[in-house]
Design a protein around this nucleic acid. Sequence first.
DNA 1: CTACTGACATACGCGGTGTATGTGACCGAC
DNA 2: GTCGGTCACATACACCGCGTATGTCAGTAG
Lengths: 201, 201
Amino acid sequence: MTVVKSRREQYSEATRAALVEAATARFATAGYAATGLEDVAGDIRATRGAVYHHFSSKKALFEAVLDELEVQATERITAAYRGAPDPWSGAVAALEAFLDQCCDPVYSRVVWREGPIAMGWGGWHTTEQKYAHGTIEAILRDLQAKGLLAPLPLATLTEVTFCAIGAAGHGLAEADLADRPGLRAEYSAVLGRMIGGLRPD
Amino acid sequence: MTVVKSRREQYSEATRAALVEAATARFATAGYAATGLEDVAGDIRATRGAVYHHFSSKKALFEAVLDELEVQATERITAAYRGAPDPWSGAVAALEAFLDQCCDPVYSRVVWREGPIAMGWGGWHTTEQKYAHGTIEAILRDLQAKGLLAPLPLATLTEVTFCAIGAAGHGLAEADLADRPGLRAEYSAVLGRMIGGLRPD
DNA sequence: CTACTGACATACGCGGTGTATGTGACCGAC
DNA sequence: GTCGGTCACATACACCGCGTATGTCAGTAG
């Protein structure tokens, strides 16, 4: 199925990938606002022209970065969920996988800190529906269908859960690397208890 | 204690207040990024010079707007808490007061949507420590001291609760005005249940 | 070999922030 | 009351970063 690519296409793809990689690093360290496209292009010894050839805008470049990170993260988290014997322990496993993911400074910073700033809260939230938000909804729907969760409105339930879990994302994004393991355990305890409150009576 | 103000001081104060008011309206409708200082100044038939005389930067103007909104909101919410007979019903009352507050389109939009965008998540969060975040922490500390709350680490507990409650702020900020009462009830149910999960065993 | 397409580089316009400087109204001292 | 100083704003300008229009050259198809 893999189509043979011409040399030009290979070069082009490599350039695009390099831009995404460089942008990821910049956004994760300096942040979205403080990163100029000139910086990103300079990192791979190209110019802003190259950026605008591959991406329609600075925001589009950010979206590419975010997508890349979220696809990988979502894949891991859903794998954790599916690998568990029953839905409840699956939900716990997914939560743990998410918290692990948030200990990655690049993921936590780009997705949870810079995301809403770069794309606006609405745009970011829309994108998240495909990833974290969507994953949570699927899990909660599953639990509810099996009667393991109180019959609360799914959309609102998802929203609150998403933001509560996001607290961990933000919190771990801000913390020093050395403090993260300890913090992670705390978030796990608090979130576990809160989500436990959602079991049917 | 009220010092007599000279006419100039009165004028100046009125101008400043008018700027904050105009900025509040603009930020609440067009958003932070799409609002130019020229627009704000124009609304009160002044120029950007007036803005920069009273505020050191656009961000500083936003902070003034946010402070104004948060001071009023916090006052109402803490009043609701103190007016209740016992800490648990106080916490519930505070939550309800907060949800009411979030149904105000200006509050929800400026504080919860534009805040992190305008000031960066870190700066916004720092400011919030004085208001919503701080209020939550005080309430939780109170509950914990009285043994009404599981002995989880306070800072993390506050952080997660803050973000979970913030979900309502965001959700209501995005929703159509007509849908807000219904949504408000849903958030109340979900949050009530989650926070209920925090009671000691 | 030629004509064309696609991947970039270069150059420019434009909107918006922040800053430096100007101006006129008010205020206190004599 | 007038005069020097100060304060509240207006005006003008510099700068920075995004986006866009245009140019250039290597690679590719026929």
